[in-house]
Design a protein around this nucleic acid. Structure first.
Lengths: 239, 239
DNA sequence: TTTTTTTGTCATAAAACTGTAACAAAATCC
DNA sequence: GGATTTTGTTACAGTTTTATGACAAAAAAA
């Protein structure tokens, strides 16, 4: 998993220990964790920082998790942020209330970090395909395999299917050198009869596409004379 | 809940009573229920009828729910169908295993019909926005599933049923690429014999309809050469 | 039934993509 | 430097994929 911008999770709980425990576990999993200690704070922070997921304790001072959830769901701007409700109660009425109110999941205390984590991942997988099917990134280049979108410095780049595949291949292992034969095998398929020079042309096309809208062009595809191509700058190749 | 065709739910459990109980409750909620009594049957049926959601008992003859889940997740054709695992066990290891394997939720027996229902709805809300929300929105396009009304820049647009369904499908997951096969499966139904090019014509009709009354036309349906179509503009995305 | 709308298919035009050759430029070797 | 090898660049033709309009069949409405 190689996304540089972390997934932001807001967690609201009035119990410091609990908060710290969750923060610790989520941070370990490379999430960015923002915490709030009561309902109002959670609400404010949500609207400020747009977390990718919100975890709300049911019972909190000032505003309960349920109320925060209701508020968030009523505004279009926050309607789609996934919410998990934590609760000490186990009665059925509560469970279903949580879900009916628009929460995405409901976890009963006590729960193990592993379980919470599993649920978080399950939800992210559904609600944010773009996060789950995450992208590959190298310097200012991002490519989204699921949507076949390529962005360079935040701008969309148009590439033909072949070029997209070649770039994907290089992105999978930055700095690794791919020989023309390897590229042919992986992109065109094994055993096809294509001139090796053809790849040069495709590389050229990729480079050209990346130049559009980027006057300060940094050649991101390194030519390795006698060997092939690799993702990386021409100046600072190895590390 | 409003949809043109009923939501299909496949439920697999080897215990007839349990099966019947769930079937009864789901049917009451206007779902179309298909049942299987063991893992293998569940797997076969899944691939045959493309349910909108699958409920699997953990312990089943021939093939466990977990194994069925794994199989379904390994095939691209069934990868996106939401899955709920039912289990009598409550140990943590199991819970997380269920979710990690790619299930969307995990419900421990005994559960109340209300709870199962709430979870089903929570999941469908994510995976099929058109079923849960009053309308879906993308840029200046709004579509109201319940009334089959489409508005672009506030103006009503006329679409035939097929075109409406195609557009709905694309709207459920903006930016995601749908292959012609996927569109055929979802809109016409699986296993129907229609020329793939027919979809091009329908797409053309949708685009045309959206052009009416909009001189500053922004092509909202992206053609992904070699792959299919996706909702999104060609130039500016939102990733 | 008649009329209108919707739908599927075809033929053809248009567009996009690909592979190659030819030559220029750069790097390497002697 | 000069020869040789490798890569860069461009133009172009061939191929594949989409777009589009026309038309008839099918379905729905009147």
């Amino acid at each position: 998993m190689n996304s540089l911008s972390k997934i932001k999770i807001l967690i609201a709980d009035d119990e410091p220990n609990q908060l710290e425990l969750i923060r610790f576990n989520l941070t370990k999993e490379n999430f960015e964790v923002i915490s709030a200690s009561d309902g109002e704070e959670a609400l404010c922070l949500s609207e400020e920082i747009f977390p990718d997921l919100i975890i709300l304790d049911w019972m909190m001072p000032k505003m309960s998790g349920i109320d925060v959830c209701r508020k968030l769901r009523s505004k279009s701007i926050s309607r789609d942020i996934p919410i998990i409700i934590l609760s000490a109660r186990g009665e059925e009425g509560d469970r279903t209330l949580g879900l009916e109110i628009g929460a995405d999941d409901y976890v009963t205390k006590p729960f193990s970090p592993m379980e919470l984590l599993a649920r978080i991942k399950a939800i992210l997988r559904r609600s944010r395909p773009s996060l789950a099917n995450d992208y590959m990134e190298f310097e200012n280049l991002r490519i989204y395999p699921s949507t076949q979108i390529v962005k360079y410095n935040g701008e969309k780049i148009d590439l033909g299917p072949k070029e997209f595949k070649i770039l994907s291949l290089l992105m999978e292992r930055p700095e690794q050198i791919f020989s023309r034969t390897q590229i042919l095998d992986k992109v065109w398929g094994h055993g096809i009869d294509i001139e090796q020079r053809t790849i040069d042309v495709h590389i050229r096309r990729i480079r050209k596409a990346l130049m559009i809208n980027s006057n300060e062009f940094k050649n991101i595809i390194r030519t390795v004379r006698g060997s092939g191509y690799a993702l990386g700058t021409n100046k600072f190749g190895f590390h």
